[in-house]
Design a protein around this nucleic acid. Structure first.
Ligand SMILES: [Mn+2]
Ligand SMILES: [Mn+2]
Ligand SMILES: [Mn+2]
Ligand SMILES: [Mn+2]
Lengths: 150, 150
DNA sequence: TATAAATTTTAGCTTGCACTAAATTTTGTC
DNA sequence: GACAAAATTTAGTGCAAGCTAAAATTTATA
């Protein structure tokens, strides 16, 4: 097969594409942290405390998996823990939780406004939310501010 | 702290939420495969063949990473390979590539129609595309069919 | 207050996906 | 055709995130 030398245009397109994939990989690195702190904040608001067993149930994973994840979150300064006690968010953790929660709602509501049933919107939003840039978030906000469905 | 017994309503909400997270984890398992077959199909269309070195450049990872990923894709029946030769898609791989490509375009175009600049739309679509259910895809399609921006 | 149940933690295992460095093979050029 | 360059593959490493099974600790109950 002929190994044609790529034109400058194709080269630039390749690095542009590479940047997109790098962004996606970075989003994946933040993803677990965002879901955990959002869940922890919700549990604290609703039940008064966040226990590992409740996180495990809502995430659909085992206690051991949650424990390991919480160790990483503590290492990264998002939660504080005392052995055998429930979990607390640091200031930075609470900040990330608020931000994630707001974005989650906007994505879900935008999907609903686009005609997706709320059950499906909730499911899809759980994955989509981590890949929404500031610009896209702003666009969704504006879309939601526009006239509702008649 | 009081360990209040959760009400049935909270219990059902917990399993509903767990299902969302399970869906996201499943999407992540398909994600690499979808990106690779889509890229391979594009390279075959544009340059006539798909070489590992081109995949690596466009993905922003090393040759070794691409090689390992291709081994998994071959194991899963999405590509065929001969040692030191370029990569081919199986029928199933081509099917997945077409599907991924179509979904990618719809997500990107929907973002653009929502007012996102095309550069940002392309970046965000690369992550969002893997978390779009059939129902949401249908909603985006309808949204795109509606009247364009005046 | 003993004992049982629930919860948290630890230990050990697996897979995916990223890396570097080096070996192997193919491709291009003189 | 020899040699250099490019591409592919292998080997070895590390971390994230899932699992099961068992140990440690706390909480609830008889
Ligand atoms: Mn999420
Ligand atoms: Mn969320
Ligand atoms: Mn993608
Ligand atoms: Mn894509």
């Amino acid at each position: 097969m002929p190994a044609k030398r790529p034109s400058p245009t194709v080269l630039r397109e390749a690095t542009r594409q590479a940047r997109s994939f790098e962004r996606v990989r970075q989003a994946h690195q933040r993803e677990v942290a965002e879901d955990y702190v959002e869940l922890i904040a919700d549990l604290i608001d609703v039940t008064g405390e966040a226990r590992a067993v409740d996180l495990a149930e809502r995430l659909g994973v085992t206690n051991a998996t949650v424990n390991a994840a919480l160790n990483r979150l503590a290492r990264d300064g998002l939660v504080t823990r005392q052995r055998y006690r429930s979990i607390f968010l640091t200031t930075e953790g609470r900040r990330l939780a608020e931000e994630s929660r707001a974005r989650h709602r906007i994505v879900r509501d935008a999907l609903i406004k686009l005609g997706v049933d709320s059950e499906t919107a909730e499911i899809d939003a759980e994955g989509i939310e981590h890949h929404i840039s500031a610009r896209t978030l702003a666009a969704l906000r504006e879309f939601l501010e526009g006239a509702g469905t008649p």
